[in-house]
């Protein structure tokens, strides 16, 4: 989720943020603040790619709860995890998911725009609907799911044209856990992936 999340930040930066919402709520503010904080970092030509990655990670930690993200992505397997697995998995997942976005930093051109269309509250969740406008290609609808968690608003999922990043990652990780016979198998694969970089 994290690298796709940051990829969308890059998209937001590469284009212009086009607020089209008449009345802005707290969830809208989250997306707006996220874009305004990440833009200078993504836009900087003085920082190395690694430095930009580190700064983005720091910004992102203000909008995503790493532990909660791991709980969501592990689904029912989280309840089976022991204390050491619960301590290691969020760190491994963050590192694994962060890894790919660095290679994306220079690959997105500046021809995209990102428009906030509105927000909807459904139960305890708020969806901020946005649209990524691409030249010579259909627009992409992206919904940012925001929830109150321990007194702050955090992004808990990103839904791109109906495809949830958390649900997709959970399906992927669950398959590996089933194939490997447990969480240790997933942890081993994640470690190997990170070591091979």
């Amino acid at each position: 989720m994290l690298r796709r999340f940051i990829f969308l930040l890059i998209i937001a930066w590469c284009g212009q943020i086009l607020p089209t919402l008449a009345s802005a709520g707290p969830a809208y503010d989250v997306i707006n603040v996220l874009a305004s904080k990440s833009t200078p970092v993504l836009n900087s030509r003085d920082l190395s790619k690694t430095a930009r990655a580190q700064q983005l990670q720091a910004i992102m930690q203000g909008f995503v709860d790493r532990d909660q993200m791991a709980v969501s992505m592990m689904g029912r397997y989280w309840r089976r995890a022991d204390a050491s697995q619960k301590a290691e998995l969020p760190i491994l997942l963050e590192a694994y998911l962060l890894d790919a976005y660095v290679s994306r930093l220079d690959s997105v051109n500046g021809s995209l725009s990102f428009a906030i269309q509105g927000e909807r509250t459904l139960g305890n969740r708020t969806l901020v609907d946005t649209e990524v406008v691409r030249p010579n290609a259909p627009n992409i609808l992206v919904a940012w799911q925001i929830e109150e968690f321990e007194g702050r608003s955090v992004i808990t999922d990103i839904i791109i044209e109906g495809v949830s990043l958390v649900v997709s990652q959970r399906a992927d990780f669950s398959s590996i856990i089933r194939q490997q016979g447990g969480l240790d198998g997933l942890i081993t694969i994640l470690r190997q992936k990170l070591q091979s970089k």
Partner: peptide, 25 residues
């Protein structure tokens, strides 16, 4: 997910991800 989204005529729905999940510890 994509097929369900098309059947719903592109209505983005919230997911079960997030704060409603069990606590970390």
């Amino acid at each position: 997910q994509r097929r369900d989204y098309e059947i719903r005529n592109k209505d983005q729905k919230p997911t079960d991800a997030g704060a409603s999940r069990p606590p970390v510890q």
